[in-house]
Amino acid sequence: MKPKVFILYAPGNNCHHETAKAFEMAGAQPQIVHLTDDLIARKKSMSDCDILAIPGGFAFGDHLAAGRIFALDLVFRLKEALMEVREKKILIIGICNGFQVLVNTGLLPGTKDIGQPTAILDRNASAVFESRWVTLTIEKSPCIWTRGLAGQTVHIPVAHGEGRLRLSPEFSDELTVFRYDHSAYPRNPNGSPANRAGICDPSGRILGLMPHPERAIYPWNNTDDGLNILKQGVHAVAG
């Protein structure tokens, strides 16, 4: 059986189609699931999948803060389902806006309870949106999505206005999964401290990253480096 991936969609998300295609190419069975019409309306259960992906975009227009309204829905309207996802040890990936959602829910870095954010993906140091290709180094971490890939570098795009990851001092650097390969702008496009581009929770199941692996999956996309990361997650579930 191919692992089932739920790709959550809220109005304003705009990377769900390519995320679905990328997971399909990585060997999974993706399904786009609507936050409002499927989950909040209780037509589907969020935990009825093997992988949960929160894609990029501008959910709810990024109003008030990137990812905030989506996160409030998860934490306050879907709290029980979210607990089930955690209990069933379902893998989660948040890409770009999805990462911002996960940080707003407190699931990342995951050091406090759900609903208590301890980090922020803050306005880029350049104060503008940055659309570029970046090189990332994969760190040694408990992250299931990069198991066996530590030490490698990948070249994939970023596209965001709020990607400067500010963490509380208690954050343990072992949870850093990806780093930009240099501290100088624009190789670190957003001024993220310690060049962090992606982190995981202590269990290693939840990954959030600003760069877009789903935009580098074909040979003609400049690189297809992004596919490996998604494959790793799919393989981990498929066993």
């Binding site: 189609h17 390519e18 295609k21 503008v128 795009p157 877009h212 789903e214 935009r215 003609w220 996309n221």
Partner: peptide
Amino acid sequence: AQFDSTVQGNTVLGPYGGIDG
């Protein structure tokens, strides 16, 4: 570079390219 040129995942040649980007 303030405008997203890789969204939709199908970009082959965007506004800028080359090793310098």
